[in-house]
Design a binder for these strands. Structure first.
Lengths: 200, 200
DNA sequence: ATTGAAACGGATCTAGC
DNA sequence: GCTAGATCCGTTTCAAT
């Protein structure tokens, strides 16, 4: 959906605290729908959410201002760009002091082929997902960009044979009190103290 | 940006082969821009791409029909939903036959907390990224959903301390002949056989 | 104050050159 | 392929609860 003044609004959004305001059912529904397809019209949104277009517009505006909805983006088919190879790299640094971490993160953040980077617990310090056309390109990335970062001690690369699932849609089931969403609601642990006695 | 007939068009898109049609500079530019912000208007797009709004509209339409642009989605702040914990799980199956793999993938694909799943080379069979509110919820996911999948032999969980980088924007530098994008164009290996001799 | 409806203005889409 | 016009929809305003 087109959000005309999104950019202006983002300004004030940053200043606001990310208040963990409880999200009401309308917000949750809108988030779910917009995560699936943000090109949906207000009319369709309103119908699917069981609300008026006005309500939906106002709520979306608020969700954007408060930074819950950060932006909308086009999802591109990686294969169409020839980017069929996913590589996970576990990176170990020589020293884990603040400066070393910052230096690494800054260098990594600028590399467009690095889709994700996580500071990890356990054996390795960082886990990266890198997307490339082929192994030759990956090799160039490692040699030209990874190993040139000061303090990088060790690399361990794992190659993905297939991307089984990839979604940008965060789960929302936990936001509703009960009645899970993508779930046939298997069996939920009773809320402590409500163990069935008489009904049995 | 609003794409009115997106849904109808998607139908024919699927039938078409994902032709690795060479992408011209306009398409590349549009992809870059739409990956950053799909709420941008046609006018802005056209200006940034150095083309008319009509050209851009037609090209976008084509990119959507051919499935290069799959859809647009809202990007949500995970923290706003309380989803601050990222876990990577390496899963090993007892047997790697077709049936076992399919069964696992089907079960995993339906779990909304699984954001990504890759079939891997190397020691483990699958690598998952799971997003949850806290460790308790992760524990429930493992017990209720992962270990209940038949054929799962071994799990190895690694916890992310911080999400340093996360982007949905695929790199595009490789699509252009030369002149890299997010790059000050450091030093490119000459194309084999053009080693400088006389110029030196 | 909050909500819905309806008019407005601007952007998308299309047809004609 | 570009320009200009018709149409649609996000945005705003206003009235009613």
């Amino acid at each position: 959906m087109r959000a005309r003044f999104a950019k202006i609004l983002r300004r004030e959004a940053i200043s606001r605290k990310t208040t963990s305001t409880e999200l009401d059912p309308l917000s949750i529904r809108l988030i779910e729908l917009m995560q699936k397809d943000s090109d949906i019209g207000l009319a369709e949104l309103a119908e699917a959410a069981g609300a008026t277009t006005s309500s939906c517009w106002r709520r979306l505006d608020e969700l954007r201002k408060t930074g819950v909805i950060q932006r909308s983006v086009a999802v591109i088919d990686p294969a169409a760009l020839g980017l069929t190879v996913n590589v996970f790299v576990q990176v170990t640094l020589e020293k884990q002091n603040e400066a070393a971490l910052r230096a690494f993160q800054n260098r990594i953040a600028r590399r467009p082929e690095v889709m994700e980077c996580y500071l990890m617990s356990g054996d390795a310090d960082y886990l990266l997902r890198v997307v490339v056309e082929d192994l030759a390109q990956y090799h160039r990335f490692v040699v030209d960009h990874l190993t040139t970062i000061p303090g990088v001690a060790n690399l361990r690369s794992s190659f993905a044979l297939d991307q089984v699932k990839y979604t940008t849609a965060l789960p929302t089931a936990h936001l509703r009190g009960s009645e899970a969403v993508g779930d046939p609601a298997p069996r939920r642990k009773p809320p402590r103290g409500s163990a069935r006695r008489k009904t049995e």
